[in-house]
C-alpha cells in the first residue's frame, strides 16, 4: 500500500484537530491542553495530532500542527517528508482572514509541496464561501474547498479530494 503524509495547518481555532479527529479511522493521538488565555475554545494543541485513514490504495497519515505561534518550532518538524499540506481557515471568522493569508505565505516560503485550502465552519450561516476566499488569496477556485470539520463524511471528502489531486500530480503556486 502506498503511503502519503499530509500535514494540517492553520491558525488556532481553524479546526485542525477537529478535522484530523473526524477523518481518522484509527484512535487519534492529540495533545490538546487547557488554554490559559481565552482563545474562544477550552483547549489548544501543544505538540501535534496524529490520525490515519485508508483511501483506496493509499494510506493517508494525517498530522495536525499546533496553531499558536509559540509552538511554531513544531511546524518545520512536522513538514519533514510531507507530500502535501491542508491549510484550514475558519470560514465563520472573516477577521482571521488576513492573519491566515500571512500564515499561508509563511508556509509557502517554508515548502513547495502541494497544498489545498479548506474553509471550515461551512455549516455556519453566512460563512465565507470558498470562491470568496480563493479570490482573496489569489488562488484558483479548485484549490479552495468548503468543509464541515465536525462531520466525518465532509472531513473525509476534503482529504479524499486532495489525495486525488496529488495522484494526478497537480502542483501549483
Amino acid at each position: 500500500m502506498k503511503e502519503i503524509k499530509l500535514v494540517v495547518v492553520g491558525l488556532t481555532g481553524s479546526g485542525k484537530t477537529t478535522l484530523v479527529k473526524h477523518a481518522s479511522q484509527i484512535p487519534v493521538v492529540e495533545t490538546d491542553e487547557r488554554s490559559l488565555r481565552d482563545i474562544g475554545k477550552p483547549t489548544t494543541t501543544t505538540a501535534l495530532d496524529f490520525g490515519a485513514v485508508d483511501m483506496g490504495d493509499v494510506r493517508v497519515r494525517l498530522f495536525g500542527t499546533p496553531g499558536q505561534e509559540r509552538f511554531s518550532y513544531m511546524w518545520d518538524d512536522l513538514l519533514q517528508g510531507a507530500d502535501g499540506f491542508i491549510f484550514l481557515i475558519d470560514g465563520s471568522d472573516p477577521e482571521s482572514l488576513e492573519a491566515a493569508r500571512e500564515m499561508l505565505r509563511t508556509y509557502r516560503e517554508k515548502t513547495s509541496i502541494p497544498f489545498i485550502v479548506g474553509i471550515t465552519h461551512s455549516d455556519v450561516p453566512r460563512s465565507m464561501t470558498p470562491e470568496e476566499v480563493a479570490k482573496y488569496l489569489e488562488l484558483p477556485e479548485w484549490a479552495v474547498r468548503g468543509v464541515v470539520a465536525t462531520d466525518r463524511e465532509s472531513a473525509l471528502s476534503l482529504v479524499g479530494y486532495f489525495v486525488e489531486l496529488l495522484k494526478k500530480g497537480g502542483r501549483y503556486g
Binding site: 495533545t31 491542553e33 487547557r34 488554554s35 490559559l36 488565555r37 483547549t43 489548544t44 501543544t46 505538540a47 499546533p66 499558536q68 509559540r70 509552538f71 518550532y73 513544531m74
Partner: peptide, 26 residues
C-alpha cells in the same frame, strides 16, 4: 503552563524562557 506560557523561571544562564516553556509543555 500546560498550554506553553512561561509562569516562573530561575536560571544561572540566560535561557529563551518563552520558547523553552512551549517545548516543555509539548
Amino acid at each position: 503552563s500546560l498550554d506553553g506560557f512561561p509562569l516562573q523561571y530561575a536560571s544561572r544562564n540566560t535561557i529563551d524562557v518563552d520558547r523553552q516553556a512551549a517545548v516543555i509543555a509539548s
